Amino acid sequence: MTDSAPASPFDFTEEEIEAARVLFQRQATFVMGAAKLEQLPEPDLPEIAFAGRSNVGKSSLINGLVGMNKLARASNEPGRTREVNFFDLDGKMRLVDLPGYGWAKASKTTVKKFQDLGRDYLRGRVTLKRVYLLIDSRHGLKSVDTEALDALDLAAVSYQIVLTKADKIKAHERVSVAEKTLKAISKRPAAFPAVAVTSSEKGFGLPELRAEIMRTTGAEL
């Protein structure tokens, strides 16, 4: 395995990378967890959301983006994120952690309740700028991810694939899985035509993802 950073699919200037670094170093705080649609905070800030299978690394990615170890709670217990969790970044935007899917041990009733909450959020959130769908780079897109892709297309919400844990595979494998993933989503109507390759543990891919989020939300310092 190698820890060298993969090439980025994004075209950012050094100034954009630096501005995003400064923005994401500002104070990030947990706002609330919503278990019902009516509990959501007022849609008064641009939001970007993170979705993915349980244990794909959503909490680690959020923590890595803001440079904090415990902002989002990571857990070894699949399916622990059963609310829509909101984090405020210096009053500029909200980062939203959606309930995970693919739970092995949760009841069907529980799964449906929290997946429906996520879908309701996606359909009705006017300030939602993009969803980042996290996929474990070691495994690529699986059949269980198809339902999430379909739901995002149906909601007509712009979404982008983020490959996580890319430090766990070799450089040529990163290129291969990114190419296969991009091809798999190429005809999906709401998919953003680029795949981010990241490692929360090693930090690569995060500077470009911060810049992409900053650009997407229109947030300014």
Rank of each mutant, 00 (worst) to 15 (best):
G205D: 00
T29Q: 11
E47T: 01
V162H: 00
S75P: 00
E18H: 13
D153A: 08
H172E: 13
L95C: 04
P99H: 03
V197T: 14
H172G: 00
F30S: 11
S199G: 07
G140Y: 03
A28Y: 10
K180Q: 15
A7E: 15
V56E: 04
W103R: 13
A155M: 03
A20V: 09
G205W: 01
V66S: 11
S107T: 15
Y121S: 15
L149W: 01
L149V: 02
V126S: 12
S200V: 08
E212C: 00
I17F: 08
L128I: 12
A151V: 05
K92F: 00
K105D: 10
E14H: 10
E179Q: 05
P193K: 02
V157I: 13
G100F: 11
K113E: 14
R188F: 06
L122H: 03
I17W: 09
D145A: 01
Y121V: 14
L154Q: 05
L221N: 08
E38Q: 07
R73S: 05
A35K: 15
E14F: 08
Q115D: 11
R125H: 12
T127I: 08
N69R: 14
E179M: 08
E77R: 11
E208N: 08
V157T: 07
D88K: 03
H139Q: 14
L128S: 11
K129H: 12
D88S: 09
V144N: 02
N69P: 00
Y132F: 15
D3Q: 13
P78Q: 01
N69W: 02
I17Q: 13
G57M: 09
L95G: 01
D136F: 11
A49L: 02
K113P: 08
E14W: 07
D90R: 02
L221H: 13
N63T: 08
E42G: 07
Y121C: 14
T2K: 09
Y121W: 11
Q115N: 15
P41C: 05
Y132Q: 06
E208P: 01
G67A: 04
K202R: 14
L89T: 05
F30W: 15
R53W: 06
S59N: 06
E147Q: 12
A28V: 08
W103Q: 13
A219Y: 10
V144L: 10
A104S: 14
R80C: 09
G100Q: 07
G57H: 03
T127W: 03
G64I: 05
A194V: 08
R82Q: 14
D3P: 04
A219T: 10
P189A: 00
L182H: 03
A51Y: 02
M214I: 00
S199R: 11
Y159Q: 06
A194Y: 06
V56S: 04
Q160D: 02
G102C: 12
S8F: 10
